[in-house]
Design a protein around this nucleic acid. Structure first.
Length: 663
RNA sequence: GCCGAGGUAGCCUAGCGGGUUGGGGCGCUCGACUCAUAAUCGAGAGGUCGGGGGUUCGAAUCCCCCCCUCGGCACCA
């Protein structure tokens, strides 16, 4: 009997909508689990909402609702999303439920009992008006080193230094804006430092993706610090005998245990998995939470006498159209957007699973999405399935597939072996490329065998060819089912396979007589107009975010033509340019504005060299009140486009005399 | 700044215990075919292997320096 497996996904934080970054972890995990099941493994797949923590409390407050109401909303949302995209957890729980609190408290008590938790007085920012202690990200003040505006724990806009509690000057509460004070308070710490040797040893044997393991090993070799595991909040799991809750990163991973308990009800004993170590535990996470899963979590488990994870599989981060994923800057693809577009959900599953190595960053692009769907899924895989099934149905109706060429069976078996091997190495792109290659092989075979000619001359021979092709099609449907379950279930029906209950090895056995139904077209093409629409939606979102960030209003107030006429704008020719001493952004320009040479200062030195601009025609606002900049008098202003804060020079469509008016 | 991952043709990538002309896929060009969703099949063009230096008879592959991208840096999920 093989060791059963428990597969988990990093818990989505119930504070925002599902986006493509979430799917980057969940889709491959789901596909992996489906393959395991088709390999006959006993596997439990769990996940759930992470419901605690400060941001949820603060956001709920902002909206004037309770944290639970906020969590309800996103918990439901995620469940709907997962259902819609065929991510099938055996259990999807939530960390604000009773059973999870019970499990967490028991866990923490065990840590205390084993001597791994100790109290310590620390100084924390406290807002007298809100009457509460403030997490660092809700404290704003002045950096004692450089004088910039800084947040509680780091001078994020200035010198970048890490700030210790109590260091920041003039602390203010970011929520209500009033002055904060520092107060001492007793908190509890987890003795992470006691686990250094254990972790070094453990990480040597932990399996998973290298990006996670190397990163964790490096951290542990350095200095570990004990870890504060309590917070001043009402919302969360109560810390035993204190008016504090446990830190969300303590209780969230314990969700893996409490959700397993629920998933195991009437099925198995969760203790076999989490206490007795009888199952293999595999965590799928995003690269951003490696620290918690490879360091905190194993130490906690060890400290509380639980079983340890066997593998941590970390997915790379998602970029959007080449830019760093950012909700606030608009570089985000919500799963809802995708649903609204009405695309087959299997496309997105394939795209995410196949786009690049699981460990690498995935650069989401609607254009690439369209190409992959139209050229790979449809042209290669879909076309092979359809041309074979359609040909067989139209010409024969039923085909005896009790005998298939050795060459074909070998190819099918090779493909299975390669897929399985790739999965074991978490090389998901390789796994899916492998069955796509089989589809390519099928197309070549069909093309070379020319059954459409044979049917006229040698019906028997044609039938043998088609039997071979049908066996290839069966294999393809089975092998690609975990990635594209919805479509492959449909295609399976046309060819008489119940894929849902199939095993991978079924592709290696012969079905006998296959009765064909009129095949459905497996996939609809992705339309360019739809893609353009999605791109426009994203551009709109990005632009709106940029506006909001810069604080620029959509349009300035309406002005009279007379107001505009007051501005004297002319085309001038730059006749001389040099850098302003001591200023890296400034150039001193001499500009011919039509019989008169003006001196002005322009902030373009970071983007243009003096010799690049001499001779150029540029628009100049000549009646601007003169100003002294860095000791140099500027009699006017050169106009330029502002692109992300960088100047881009403007010039007339054709040569015009200096002094020409702009109106 | 520190740590990790990465930088190979327009895009996705293989190769990285050094060794015959750096593989594959998409796109592109040309040709073939028509069973099939203008799908398929064949051929071809396209690369200073991030930059520079070094080791070597020989480097994408080893060493040094630099540049760029992404993630993390713990009381922030």
């Amino acid at each position: 009997m093989k060791r059963p497996k428990l597969v988990t996904c990093g818990l989505p934080y119930a504070n925002g909508k599902a986006h493509i970054g979430h799917l980057r972890t969940y889709v491959p995990a789901d596909v992996y689990v489906r393959y395991l099941k088709m390999l006959g493994e006993d596997v439990i797949f769990i996940c759930g909402s992470d419901c605690h923590g400060t941001p949820i409390v603060v956001n709920a407050e902002k909206e004037g609702i309770s944290p639970r109401e906020l969590v309800d909303r996103y918990h439901d949302h995620f469940q709907k999303v997962f259902k819609a995209i065929d991510i099938e957890f055996d259990f999807f729980g939530r960390t604000d439920s009773e059973y999870h609190h019970v499990r967490t408290q028991e866990f923490v008590k065990k840590l205390i009992e084993n001597g791994y938790v100790f109290p310590k007085e620390i100084e924390l920012a406290y807002c007298p008006r809100c009457q509460r202690f403030l997490p660092d990200r809700y404290v704003e003040g002045i950096c004692p080193y450089c004088g910039s505006v800084a947040r509680g724990d780091e001078c994020d806009q200035g010198c970048g230094r890490h700030l210790e509690p109590g260091e920041i000057k003039e602390p203010k509460c970011k929520i209500c804006g009033s002055n904060a004070v520092f107060r001492k308070q007793k908190h509890y710490f987890f003795r992470l430092t006691a686990f250094k040797d254990f972790l070094l040893d453990y990480l040597e044997n932990l399996r998973g993706t290298e990006n996670a393991l190397n990163y964790a090993k490096q951290w542990v070799k350095g200095e570990l610090k004990d870890w504060c595991i309590t917070r001043n909040l009402e919302w969360g799991v109560k810390f035993p005998d204190e008016d504090l809750v446990v830190y969300v990163w303590v209780d969230a991973p314990i969700g893996y245990i409490s959700f397993t308990e629920k998933a195991c009800e009437n099925r198995c004993d969760w203790r076999d998995i989490w206490i007795n170590g009888k199952a293999e535990i595999i965590h799928f996470i995003g690269l951003d939470i490696v620290y918690h899963h490879c360091i905190f979590w194993p130490a906690m488990l060890k400290g509380a006498n639980y079983a340890l994870p066997d593998a941590v599989v970390a997915s790379g981060m998602v970029k959007v159209e080449g830019k760093t994923f950012s909700k606030s800057r608009g570089y985000v693809v919500w799963v809802e957007d995708y649903f609204k577009a009405g695309f087959n959900t299997d496309y997105l599953r394939y795209y995410i699973f196949n786009y690049t190595s699981h460990q690498r960053d995935l650069n989401f692009s609607w254009g690439v999405f369209r190409d992959k769907v139209n050229n790979e899924i449809i042209a290669t895989l879909g076309n092979f399935l359809y041309r074979v099934m359609h040909f067989a149905w139209k010409n024969f109706g039923s085909v005896d597939v009790s005998e298939v060429d050795e060459e074909i069976m070998q190819k099918i078996e090779e493909t299975r072996d390669k897929v399985v091997k790739a999965l074991q190495q978490w090389e998901f792109k390789v796994a899916s490329d492998t069955f796509m290659e089989l589809a390519g092989f099928g197309n070549v075979y069909f093309q070379n065998a020319k059954p459409w000619e044979l049917i006229k001359e040698d019906r028997e021979k044609c039938l043998r060819i088609i039997a071979n092709c049908l066996q290839l099609a069966r294999a393809l449907i089975i092998y690609s089912f975990p990635v594209m379950p919805r479509t492959m279930e449909k295609m399976g029906r046309c060819i008489g396979i119940d894929v849902k209950s199939s095993k991978l090895d079924d592709a290696l056995s012969l079905p006998g007589v296959v009765r064909l139904e009129r095949p459905e077209v497996p996939f609809e093409k992705v339309d360019d107009r739809k893609i353009e629409e999605m791109e426009r939606l994203m551009m709109k979102r990005i632009r709106r975010a940029e506006m909001a960030e810069k604080g620029v209003k959509e349009e300035k107030e309406i002005v009279d033509i007379e107001d505009f006429k007051r501005l004297d704008i002319r085309i001038g020719r730059i006749v001389k340019a040099e850098k302003v001493k001591g200023a890296k952004k400034l150039l001193r320009l001499e500009v011919d504005i039509g019989g008169e040479i003006r001196q002005l200062v322009a902030g373009i030195a970071e983007d243009y060299e003096p010799e690049d601009v001499v001779g150029r025609l540029v628009p100049i606002l000549v009646n601007l009140k003169p100003a002294k900049i860095r000791g140099v008098v500027s009699q006017g202003m050169m106009l330029a486009a502002d692109v992300d804060g960088r100047p881009v020079l403007l010039h007339p469509d054709r040569e015009v005399p200096p002094g020409s008016r702009v109106r």
